[in-house]
Amino acid sequence: MGFNLSYELDTDLVKVVLRGELDGQTAIKSQKTFEEAAKLKPDKVVVYMKDLNYMSSAGIRLLLYIKQRVMSKSSQMILVAPQATVLNTLTMSGVTQAVHVVDAY
């Protein structure tokens, strides 16, 4: 299974949709597009994860990179509907203590 990242600009936020498997290869390949998306609305990035079936630490590092280096300091990153297995990785990595994880947005 591959990986796909798409994004759209809404009024006061940018919506990023992740699908497939985010690993060491696909995280590197999609960094530029994710960066491009976050720069459009660096205050609020909403990441839709329902169809993300797999995420390794490379995906965690990508989220951290976007939040630390691309978004503004007071910005908000919201992760929407991660699958239970992906949520477990986010929790073990401590990401859920630093960003909002919600069922729907």
Partner: peptide
């Protein structure tokens, strides 16, 4: 390290 704010992390 894993409970640091995201802005201060280097994991």
């Amino acid at each position: 390290d894993l409970i640091q704010p995201m802005e201060e992390r280097n994991i």
